[in-house]
Each structure stands twice: as C-alpha cells, then as structure tokens.
Nucleic acid binder design. Structure first.
Lengths: 141, 141
DNA sequence: CAGATTGTTGAGAACCAGTATCATCTAACC
DNA sequence: GGTTAGATGATACTGGTTCTCAACAATCTG
C-alpha cells in the first residue's frame, strides 16, 4: 500500500502533469498533516522549512489536486479555504468547529458515515461529502 | 404558528433591536426563499424589487440574524457565504452541490438526521450542523 | 548529453467578498 | 413634535484568492 504522497505524485504523472518543485513541496507538506490546513498555513509551512514556493503556486497546486480528487477542500465558514489529503477509509473524518475560538478538529463516526453513504446513494449524487458540526469546544466551555 | 418573518421580527424586538428598513427588507426577502442565498443575491434581489438598502446593511443584518440563530449560514466552498431562514423541523435540510455548474439544491434525509443527532450527542458538541454532498447534478450529467 | 519545447513557477498586480468608518437618518420613547 | 441612541448607506479599506507574464525547468528528441 503506497503512501498518500507517492500515490498523489503518480496520479499527477498519469494525468500528464509534470512534477515541479512547487507541486512536490505541497504534496510532501500535506502528507505530513493529520487534518486540514489553509493555503496560507501550507505556504508558510513550506517556506519556514526552507522551501521557496510562491503563494500562487500553492493555490494552483491545491486546485489541481482537488480536481484529481487527491485533496479534499474543507470549508468551515471563516473565509479560509482549507485542504487535506483525501486518504482512503481509515483516515476519513469530518470536522468540529468551535463557534467561540474557531478551532477546527477532526472526528469520525461510523453510523453517520453509513447514513451518508445511503443518503448519497438514494440521491444518486455524491462521491465526496463534508460534514461540519458547530458548538463550543472543551477549552471554551 | 407564526411565519418565519414575523417570528424573526419579534425576536429582533425582544433582543432590544430596532426594525429599520434594511432589517425588514432582508427578513422579508429571506422569508420568500426556499434555499440559501448569497449576500449579493439578497442585496440585488431587494434592490431590483425597488428597495434601497446598502450592501453593508445586508451583511450587518445577516450577521445579527445569524447570532440570534434566525438564519443559518451555509458554506459550500465557492468562496461565497450563503444564508437561509432557520426554520423549525420540517424545513430543515442539507445541500447538494454540483461540482460542474456550482448549483446548490436542498435535500432531506431522515436517517442521516438521526445519525447526526447521535454523533453530536456522543461528542457533546453541536447544536448546529451542516452537510454538503458533492457530485454532478442532473443537468450536467 | 545538448537542445528544443512546452508546461510550470513566482513576483506582483488585480480582483472581489466582506468589514470598518463616519456622517446622516430614523425608530422608539417621551 | 422633540430627543436620542441605535440603524443606515456611501465609500474606503482589508485580506484571501486569482490573474498576468516573463523566466525557468521537466520531459522529449535526436
């Protein structure tokens, strides 16, 4: 079983795309994250690690990866676009957002997942889905 | 059983807020919608119907209404904030987003709703939730 | 391996949804 | 009707995201 990063790089090649420094850097950075990151965080993370990528390339790469279904776009309503690797099954999760501090954390719930599968099937619609639960996190309570 | 608009206006008054032209126009416009609308759409809708509201007032009113839990903010990941009346039970729904044309349409699914309730309870977390399913809509297929 | 080709990259400008400012207006209270 | 604090709207501003374009480099070819 290949890692997500090698899988992503292979998929890029198969799509007829080249592997420039920016794409490699973004894929490598994302593969080390366990939950979603904003484009700025990704950019800063790469730069502060000694990399040299432009913001534009980060956005372009994320868009490309999203089109290939290699990353999942996550929107929690704070005006930032976040992205995370679209891994198979075991890493699949959804998000809790704290209305007070804005913190985003992942959660999983198997029954919910099954209900989603069935709903999507019934509607003949979705391959990707996103669930956002809002409330007050432990720290803020 | 009161309509959503009169309910919303009452809630505004009870919160010690006045009912200016802008607030009334936004509430009235929203009450006639069956699914979410962006702030721009709301503004344009009111203006093209002969109303005279500033964009700033639309945003301010939406924020106020959201704080009072009278409107639900919906984020489908296209960089626009959408809003819809937060009605009780029967009108509660989630959203399907077409990856091709970007169209947003509502759907309901009772089993999914129950799974959400249980998941939220287990996590001790959420009062509000939002589900977005992505795929290709009938027209684009 | 050098050279050609063409997709990729990065800096900076442009764009645009959303927010802040502030002078004017008006809803609510007397 | 007069007063006053909250509401409104035109406009300037902010910051995330996208566009532009010249320089660059991944891949292919000979």
């Amino acid at each position: 079983m290949a890692t997500w990063s090698s899988e992503a790089l292979t998929a890029l090649r198969e799509a007829g795309l080249r592997q420039g420094g920016a794409r490699r850097a973004v894929v490598e950075y994302l593969s080390r994250q366990d939950c979603c990151r904003s484009a700025q965080e990704i950019h800063d993370g790469i730069v502060s690690a000694g990399g040299a990528v432009g913001v534009a390339s980060v956005y372009r790469t994320l868009e490309t990866l999203a089109e290939l279904r290699l990353v999942q776009r996550v929107d929690v309503g704070d005006g930032l676009a976040r992205f995370e690797p679209a891994r198979e099954d075991e890493h699949h999760h959804h998000h809790l957002v704290c209305d007070d501090c804005g913190r985003v954390e992942p959660f999983t719930d198997e029954p919910l997942e099954q209900a989603l599968e069935r709903a999507a099937g019934r509607l003949g619609y979705a391959m990707q889905h996103e669930v956002v639960l809002r409330g007050t996190c432990g720290d803020c309570r």
